[in-house]
Design a protein around this nucleic acid. Structure first.
Length: 298
DNA sequence: TGCCAGGGCGCCG
DNA sequence: CGGCGCCATGGC
C-alpha cells in the first residue's frame, strides 16, 4: 500500500514554474510503496486528455479542478506537486489507483487464462503494460471527453477539451453540465467540435436536468444498467460507454473494443477470448492488450 | 495531398 | 443484426 514518505512546502522547481504560473512554493508529497506504477504509461495511454509531459519523468495537468504534477525518478516512488497529505488521502490516492493491488491483479489476469498458450500471451501483455493504472477521473469530464474522442485524434481531442475548459470552465476547471447545456449547440460547434457538438449538448442537458444521474451510476453495481443509462445519450455507443465507465466510474469490468483490441484478439486469441472470465478486471486486461498491440507489437 | 483518428447514426439488405 | 456511407476537422 502506498504511503507518504515526506510532506512539505517546496519552492516550485524551474521546470514546473510555467505550469504553476509563478507560484513561490506549493505543498508536495513524496509517496512510496507505489509498486509498478508508471507515470509515463499511465498518462500517455490515451485515457486522460488534460495531462502533458513536462520532461521524461514528469507529467502535469488538471483534474477535479486542481493543477498537479506527477514526477517519478525512481521505481516505486512518486513526487506529487501541489498536493498536501490531506489532499492525497482525500483525492489523489484513489485517482491514481494507488489503493489497488496491481501485482495481484496482474497475477489474476494471467491465472484466468484457460490454457498455456493464452497464458503466455497474457503474460507478455502484462509485462508490456506493467505500470499502467486505470485512473479514477471525474465522471462528467470523462463522459464529455470520450464523446469528443470519437473518430478523432489525441492532439485534437486535447485541443477541443482545452477550448471547452477555457470558454465554459471556472478558472481552468472542466465546465459544469449546466455551463455546457446553457452554451447551446451553435456555440459548442464554434469550438470546432464538429458533428459532436449536438452530442456534447445532449449529454450536458441530460445530466443538468437530472434525467441522467451520474452519482447513481457511480454507486450502481449492475454494469448493464449503467451501460444502458449512458447509451441513451446521443453519440454514446458501446465503445464510448465502456471507456466512460472504465475511466470515469471505476467500472473495471468494462472492456472497450476498438480496432486495436479487435486486432489483438484476432491475432493472439484465434480460438476466442472469454471477457466474462476476467470479471471485475477485464478492463485492466483490455488496457494491457491495447498497450501491447498499439505500442509494442503494432 | 490524401488518409485517418481509441465511433456512432441512419439506412439498407 | 451486419455492412456501409456519412459526419466536421485537422494532425501527420
Amino acid at each position: 500500500m502506498a504511503y507518504i514518505q515526506n510532506e512539505s512546502f517546496f519552492p516550485v522547481p524551474e521546470h514546473l514554474r510555467t505550469f504553476f504560473d509563478g507560484a513561490a512554493e506549493i505543498p508536495c508529497v513524496t509517496v512510496g510503496g507505489c509498486g509498478s506504477f508508471s507515470a509515463a504509461k499511465t498518462f500517455d495511454c490515451g485515457q486522460a486528455f488534460r495531462f502533458d509531459p513536462v520532461n521524461d519523468v514528469t507529467f502535469a495537468g488538471t483534474a477535479f479542478g486542481c493543477r498537479i504534477a506527477v514526477e517519478q525518478t525512481v521505481p516505486g516512488t512518486i513526487h506529487l506537486y501541489n498536493v498536501s497529505r490531506e489532499q492525497f488521502e482525500l483525492r489523489w490516492r484513489h485517482y491514481l489507483a494507488l489503493d489497488e493491488d496491481y501485482d495481484a491483479i496482474d497475477r489474476f489476469l494471467i491465472d484466468a487464462m484457460p490454457n498455456e498458450r493464452d497464458r503466455a500471451v497474457m503474460t507478455a501483455a502484462v509485462e508490456a503494460g506493467r505500470g499502467i493504472r486505470i485512473l479514477r477521473q471525474d465522471p462528467f469530464e470523462t463522459l464529455i471527453s470520450f464523446i469528443v474522442s470519437q473518430n478523432n485524434n489525441i492532439p485534437r481531442i486535447k485541443k477541443i477539451i482545452r477550448a471547452l475548459c477555457e470558454t465554459y470552465g471556472e478558472n481552468g476547471s472542466f465546465p459544469t453540465p449546466e455551463a455546457l447545456a446553457d452554451a447551446g449547440v451553435d456555440n459548442l460547434f464554434a469550438l470546432r467540435t464538429g458533428f459532436r457538438a449536438k452530442y456534447i449538448h445532449d449529454a450536458a442537458c441530460r445530466v443538468a436536468s437530472g434525467e441522467i444521474n451520474l452519482d447513481e451510476i457511480l454507486s450502481c453495481d449492475d454494469y448493464n444498467v449503467c451501460d444502458a443509462a449512458l447509451r441513451t445519450i446521443r453519440g454514446v455507443g458501446p465503445k464510448v460507454s465502456a471507456c466512460v465507465l472504465l475511466y470515469g466510474f471505476g467500472k473495471t469490468e468494462a472492456f472497450p473494443v476498438d480496432v486495436w483490441i479487435k486486432k489483438s484478439l484476432e491475432r493472439h486469441f484465434p480460438d476466442g477470448f472469454d471477457v466474462k472470465s476476467l470479471g471485475k478486471y477485464a478492463g485492466i486486461a483490455q488496457q494491457y492488450l491495447f498497450y501491447y498491440e498499439r505500442y509494442i507489437n503494432g
